[in-house]
Each structure stands twice: as structure tokens, then as C-alpha cells.
């Protein structure tokens, strides 16, 4: 075999193919199955997927075993003469009824899981999630803590000017933090177009629809950091609005919440920033509040302040901008 420039590529391809055949564990980079479930619901889903696959595999082996046997044996080149049967009612009834029974067997566990997924009653806490182009906002309804969560991966990594980090495109500035073992209800809506909020490990995926709220829930059994991504096409940066959930112990959660409440109670109000955040209706400048990241707005405000004779000489901080976004001030007041 020639050993040209293609060799590493070929090696990778072969490795992948053999990886497919042996097992996922050998080739860590080649994950073949759903992610390791971290909640009872996710485990149900995982097992159901395994069950359906086994059923399909069995059918595949039987049906295509027969087909390939036939291809091997009933060839003209092997001298096989064609028979001329073309119907058999008994056989046809059998292969209509058997799949039907198999389907009923599969529908039963699926029905149970559907009902469990839809049961958002009696949550331990409720978090409102709002999708924007292209970031998420989290609002802890009872505690008045509210913040934006945006992609933390630097632009340079995306544009290949820097090495990509381990959590490339799966890291955010402010992750969602929830306590372990608690039923968390998420209320979803969106500020512009439809987005969809997904944590694979916790089997929760729900579209966020502007003008409507939808609810879903999850309950993580273990602590850890779980990463998902937006799964409804929402425009140019659809791929750049990940979701990170940190599941922590109750004590850690309480401490985090307390520090968040403190952080939110920063001084309020700067009229100039408001103009940037909210725009003027009817004017060409739309409200950027839902579109730019806090850091972007902070930069824009700093620019505005320091140009145009406004030599204030100060800096606008992203945290401060976040606190100015609609509702944040109210939250701050409530927290005080």
C-alpha cells in the first residue's frame, strides 16, 4: 500500500471504523450511544433506546439473514430455477400481526415515560429560562436572582487563531446552578425567535417559544456539570449558545445563591446605558438588550461615554449591564 499524505487521514478513518465495530469504551473520542444518564427519566430513555435497538437488531438479523441467504442460494449463476408462488395469506397475516404485537410491547414503557416527563407538578423550585438570539437568561423566580448566560469560548478559538479548549463551544460565563436531588421545574419562553433548551444527561428538551411559556422539569441524581446546546435553528449564531448546568450540593447551592443575591444588589441606573439596551421604537436601532452580550453592551457604552465630549473616563462593567437589563433592577430591589 502506498504511504502518501493521506495516511493519517486513512488511519483515522480505519480507527473509527474498527472503533465502531469493537466498542465505544476503547475509543474515547467515538462515543456511540446516548450520554450517561444522570436522572431517573434519562435512564428510562436510555433503556428504552437500548430496548428498541435490540428489537430492531433481532428483526434485521432474521429478515436480512433470509434475504442474504436467498441472494447466496437462489442465484441464476448457481443454477437455481425460479419458483412461481406469489402469495400466501397465512404468511402475510402472520407478518402483519407479529410486528403489531411487538409495537404494543414497545408502546407500553414509552407511555409511562411520556406521562412522567409531562408531570411538572410539585417542583422544589422553578427557574425561568428565556432564549434570546443568541444567549440564555435564567431567572430564579422565588429568589429574584436573574442573569444572562453567554458563550465563554473566545472568538479566537472559533476562528482558529488559538488552540481550542477542552470545552470548546460548551462553556458559558454564568452557568445555571441547581441543587442535587431536587425537582427543578423550568419555565421556558423566548424574546425573539424559537429556541430550544436541552440537557442530554437529564433528558430535558423543550422549545422556548416567544409569547408563550412552556414547562418541563428535571431532577439530577448526581452532582456535576452537564452541558447542552440550543436545538432549534434560531439564526446565525445558533451553534454558539450552549447551556451549562452545574448540579451542586444543597449547601453549595445556598452559598452560591447568597453570593448571587449580593452581586445583584449593585447600584442601579445609568440613562445612557438604557438607551443602548432598549433602543427607540420605530427607530432603525432596535433594542440591543436582547441581542448583544453584556460584554458587548458594556463596550458600546464605554465607547459612547468616552466619545462625544462625555469624558467620564469610567468603565462600564458587564455585570452592571446585566443588572440593568429589564427586570434585573426589580430583582435587585427585591433582593435588598
Amino acid at each position: 500500500m502506498k504511504r502518501g499524505a493521506l495516511r493519517p487521514l486513512l488511519g483515522k478513518t480505519l480507527a473509527a471504523l474498527s472503533g465502531t465495530m469493537i466498542s465505544g469504551a476503547v475509543w474515547a473520542g467515538y462515543q456511540l450511544n446516548l450520554r450517561e444518564p444522570q436522572s431517573a427519566l434519562a435512564r428510562d430513555v436510555y433503556n428504552m433506546h437500548t430496548l428498541v435497538n435490540l428489537v430492531c437488531l433481532a428483526i434485521f438479523v432474521v429478515v436480512f439473514g433470509a434475504m442474504f441467504f436467498s441472494i447466496w442460494k437462489h442465484r441464476k449463476s448457481a443454477g437455481h430455477q425460479a419458483e412461481h408462488f406469489h402469495e400466501n395469506t397465512t404468511v402475510e397475516v402472520i407478518w402483519t400481526v407479529i410486528p403489531f404485537l411487538i409495537l404494543i410491547g414497545m408502546a407500553y414503557p414509552a407511555t409511562r415515560t411520556v406521562l412522567a416527563m409531562k408531570d411538572t407538578s410539585n417542583p422544589d423550585m422553578t427557574i425561568k429560562v428565556t432564549g434570546y438570539q443568541w444567549k440564555w437568561e435564567y431567572d430564579y423566580l422565588k429568589d429574584g436572582v436573574k442573569f444572562m448566560s453567554t458563550l465563554a469560548t473566545p472568538r479566537a478559538q472559533i476562528e482558529n487563531r488559538a488552540d481550542k479548549g477542552a470545552e470548546y463551544l460548551l462553556e458559558v460565563d454564568n452557568p445555571l446552578v441547581v441543587p442535587v436531588g431536587k425537582k427543578v421545574r423550568v419555565l421556558l419562553t423566548a424574546g425573539d425567535v424559537i429556541h430550544s433548551w436541552w440537557i442530554p444527561e437529564l433528558a430535558v428538551k423543550q422549545d422556548a417559544i416567544p409569547g408563550f411559556i412552556r414547562d418541563a422539569w428535571f431532577k439530577s441524581e448526581t452532582t456535576g456539570t452537564f452541558r447542552g446546546q440550543c436545538v432549534e435553528l434560531c439564526g446565525k449564531d445558533h451553534a454558539f449558545m450552549p447551556i451549562v448546568v452545574k448540579v451542586v450540593s444543597q449547601a453549595e447551592y445556598d452559598a452560591w445563591l447568597a453570593s448571587r443575591k449580593q452581586g445583584a444588589a449593585s447600584p442601579s441606573s445609568a440613562p445612557l446605558s438604557r438607551a443602548v439596551l432598549n433602543g427607540r421604537p420605530g427607530a432603525a436601532v432596535a433594542a440591543f438588550g436582547g441581542q448583544l452580550s453584556d460584554a458587548d453592551i458594556a463596550a458600546a457604552v464605554a465607547f459612547q461615554r468616552n466619545s462625544r465630549d462625555n469624558k467620564v473616563g469610567d468603565m462600564a462593567q458587564p455585570e452592571r449591564v446585566a443588572s440593568l437589563k429589564p427586570g434585573a433592577e426589580a430583582a435587585a430591589r427585591a433582593a435588598r
Binding site: S70, I71, S77, H80, A82, F85, T96, M106
Partner: peptide, 25 residues
């Protein structure tokens, strides 16, 4: 899920058509 039944019937019929034929490829 119900759609799997008639679709399955079709696949079975094709395999049964090949069965004991005199195939060329």
C-alpha cells in the same frame, strides 16, 4: 408506530419475492 406495520409488510414482500427466485445482479 403503526406506520411500521404496512412498511414492514412491504419489506417482507420484497424478500419473499427474492426467495427461491433465479436472481441475477
Amino acid at each position: 408506530m403503526l406506520i411500521a406495520v404496512p412498511t414492514g409488510v412491504k419489506v417482507f414482500n420484497w424478500v419473499a419475492t427474492m426467495w427461491k427466485g433465479s436472481m441475477t445482479f
